[in-house]
Design a binder for these strands. Structure first.
Lengths: 146, 146
DNA sequence: TGCGATTAGATTGTGTACAATATAATATCT
DNA sequence: AGATATTATATTGTACACAATCTAATCGCA
């Protein structure tokens, strides 16, 4: 077997799928004024508001180089507020604004629409989810828990 | 089920895994002077030299906005040459230099090392490859076959 | 053959993603 | 208590990725 043949690669399909996912989400998220990474950040915050930048990074495996500008833009859109923690001044706490909280209602349609779009792929995606998580763990998760 | 809960997302694990893969490849590819996307382009060319930018894009689901600068940098490194096709002047043909061809020898170790690194994840990755390819098809593949 | 439609790649603009580095704050050790 | 080590985030620099748009070349149709 030719280890350098594109069709024999195991990682490339993941890469290609991730990009396809991003492209598929974009028009729908654009209606909410969000990009896919921003949407992921909002998911984290809708789940637990007022967490640190570090915590968001740990959940999403993204570091401050990515998150700082991203959060700045979310703040500029009036969806979040960033403040320095009083307990530890190195920490940034990210809180949803009322508008940010309200956006959740509109956002509910996103996974529903995407789910419908890739309905026939869903069963296998459910099946591969755990393996993908394991892979992230094995390879090292990036973000601020490095 | 909360459709907006991060752990319930089916796409996020793919996104996270793709980024983890990129991070895992980077140090090794850096020794060859390549980035992961550049490495993918080289895979395509090692397989079939002298193809069009469009063909590379179709294989990798990347468009000219991404490929043009990427190929420019590969050309600057002396690994490829870009020429205008005589049959169709809109087309760019990308050919490996001798140095580009020679790099394949050093590149063989990359998949081997990565494979070793994620050995225990490999069986499931083999299993999910087809499903990931289907997903790319379903969502629309991007690149220049849009 | 001429003209409108389509295509290939370049370009512009925006938003990531991450390595490396810097600065200030906190933790740990002696 | 003081010094050193570590940590959180910002910043800098580089390389993507892709939508939108542009320009020149080619295709398809009347």
């Amino acid at each position: 077997m030719d280890v350098l043949r594109l069709d024999n690669q195991l990682c490339f399909p993941i890469y290609a799928a991730a990009h396809a996912i991003g492209r598929a989400y974009a028009p729908m998220l654009d209606e909410l004024g969000l990009t896919y990474p921003q949407y992921l950040v909002m998911l984290v915050l809708w789940e637990k508001d007022g967490v640190g930048l570090n915590d968001i990074g740990a959940r999403l495996h993204l570091d401050s180089g990515t998150l700082t500008p991203l959060l700045k833009r979310l703040e500029a859109q009036g969806l979040v507020e960033r403040t320095r923690s009083t307990e530890d001044e190195r920490r940034i706490v990210v809180a949803l604004t009322a508008e940010g909280k309200k956006l959740r209602q509109a956002a509910v349609k996103i996974p529903l629409k995407l789910g419908a779009k890739m309905a026939r792929a869903l069963p296998k995606m459910y099946a591969m989810r755990g393996a993908l998580r394991d892979l992230v763990k094995i390879l090292g998760s990036g973000g601020d828990d490095r």
